[in-house]
Design a protein around this nucleic acid. Structure first.
Lengths: 113, 113
DNA sequence: CTGAATCCGACGAGATACTG
DNA sequence: CAGTATCTCGTCGGATTCAG
């Protein structure tokens, strides 16, 4: 298996894992969602309060997409009133170091004169 | 707790460096452009041949955006016929390890079952 | 409280034609 | 060869309304 320099090796256009990974995080609020969940479990209303300006529809859809991508877990407690909790999965936690890398690189973008 | 992890610390919604970094790479062809340039200098026509399906307009605009973001350099040789070469900048090279991280994480997405 | 359904505007990207 | 100029279309995010 040649899995050393994976990025440069796989010359498959539409399905490069790096592109897939990018798509997972693309979305106006996904990074913020992940950052919130990195600090612990959150309820839907918690997220909506933290992510100032997000609408329910968009928050819901981005949460569903992240769930489908295995980044977070959605737990429904059948109570009244309903309670739903979101938490990062193992895979979601594995994403955090990658985001640190992005963050570090992004900082270098602003500095120069 | 820890003040070393930059990503979790900066609670600025619209300007998180990680978001900025993501935006730089977002675009249907940008990752592929970077991958091509990672292997060496390329001319416009080289890129268009490698990135099967891209139109001139889109390729041009994505190249211009990457240039504006300091990822690549554009060198025009005033000849006839015209010749333009694109190459990664230092900053662009610094992006490669980050993409490796994305690539590695992205591979974990497909494996299940 | 959580979320579905609908309508809308903005933007990215493709197709095509034209130019120095 | 390496672009620019239009046009179109699909998708995404936002606002609002309704529902379990």
């Amino acid at each position: 298996m040649d899995s050393e320099s994976g990025y440069l090796e796989s010359h498959d256009h539409s399905n490069c894992p790096a592109e897939v990974a990018l798509r997972v995080m693309q979305g106006r609020w996904k990074l913020l969602i992940i950052r919130e969940l990195a600090e612990g479990v959150r309820r839907f209303s918690d997220l909506q309060r933290s992510l100032v300006g997000v609408s329910q529809k968009v928050l819901t859809s981005q949460l569903r997409e992240l769930e489908a991508d295995g980044v977070l877990d959605r737990t429904v407690y059948p109570e009244v009133p309903p309670r739903v909790e979101y938490a990062l999965t193992e895979r979601g936690q594995a994403l955090l170091p990658v985001l640190e890398g992005l963050h570090a690189w992004g900082q270098g973008l602003q500095s120069p004169s």
